[in-house]
């Protein structure tokens, strides 16, 4: 999210004269209420299109994985259709992939306590790159020289189960760590606002009954313990609005 902050700083520098920021030595002095009309800091919207981070093979592998983590079934579409792979790609191409804002100074000890949390010196993007290379080799070794996206659904389930249960771990391939990472990001993608590229048409929210960003639920208190039937709304509005309104 540093992009917005950067633009905000640029904005502040550019508009110091407008609203009481004194452009002197102490450049950030604020007196009075620095209110700017029509000024908001939206997140960068994930756009459709080619992969920004993944190679074609990596993207195909992730699409195959997210579609088994969240399968298409009688409850509705799965992770691939929801755009979870797009979400992960856009996240890895952005500040998240670079671990921006995290404390990344060493030393990084070999055996941190589990209670001490994240102690990986690789960025998330690097973890994906190395992890997917390890996965590709692991699949080639164990599934007849094929690539991950060439596995059948049953084979992929077997692979993911072995990764989750640490049975696929080897010195070359930390399968359980890769599983946890992809699992976490897939769930983020399926349930985050569609503005980030996943949860297409709010299908994750529709599955469970989350009405999104409506922001005013006072009417709910008049009808407690009752199913809420208004359709969800996201930061992008609703798909119908965009079709009808012709916004591009």
């Amino acid at each position: 999210m540093s992009d917005e902050r950067l633009s905000r700083r640029t904005l502040l520098a550019a508009t110091t004269a407008l609203f009481g920021l004194v452009g002197t030595a102490d450049a950030r002095t604020v007196t009075g209420l620095p209110y700017l009309g029509n000024e908001v800091y939206p997140p960068p919207e994930a756009r459709p299109g080619p992969w920004l981070f993944f190679t074609a093979d990596e993207g195909a592998a992730i699409e195959a994985i997210v579609d088994r983590l969240i399968p298409t079934d009688d409850l509705g579409p799965g992770g691939k259709e929801a755009g979870c792979a797009i979400f992960i790609d856009r996240q890895l191409a952005g500040p998240y992939g670079r671990n921006e804002g995290m404390y990344m100074q060493g030393p990084f000890p070999a055996n941190p306590l589990p209670t001490q949390g994240y102690q990986n010196q690789l960025t998330f993007a690097e973890q994906y790159r190395r992890g997917l290379a390890g996965l590709t080799a692991h699949v080639a070794r164990n599934f007849g020289n094929r690539k991950p996206h060439q596995l059948s659904a049953e084979e992929m389930d077997r692979l993911l189960t072995s990764m989750e249960k640490r049975e696929a771990n080897s010195p070359e391939f930390n399968g359980s760590a890769l599983f946890d990472l992809i699992h976490n990001n897939t769930m983020e993608g399926f349930f985050a606002d569609p503005i980030y590229g996943g949860n297409k048409d709010m299908m994750g929210w529709k599955l469970i009954g989350f009405p999104g960003t409506r922001y005013d639920y006072r009417e709910v208190f008049d009808k407690l313990n009752t199913r809420y039937n208004r359709p969800p709304v996201s930061l992008l509005g609703r798909p119908e609005w965009n079709k009808a309104g012709g916004r591009t």
Binding site: M1, V40, G101, M104, A192, G212
Partner: peptide, 27 residues
């Protein structure tokens, strides 16, 4: 409030709830 917690951007779980946009950066 109007700019930083705008109703069109504030209810964003990924940005604020998961990626911690409002907190001090550990870096």
């Amino acid at each position: 409030t109007a700019s930083d917690f705008n109703i069109g951007t504030a209810p964003d779980e990924l940005r604020y709830g998961i990626r911690n946009d409002l907190f001090v950066r550990p870096s």
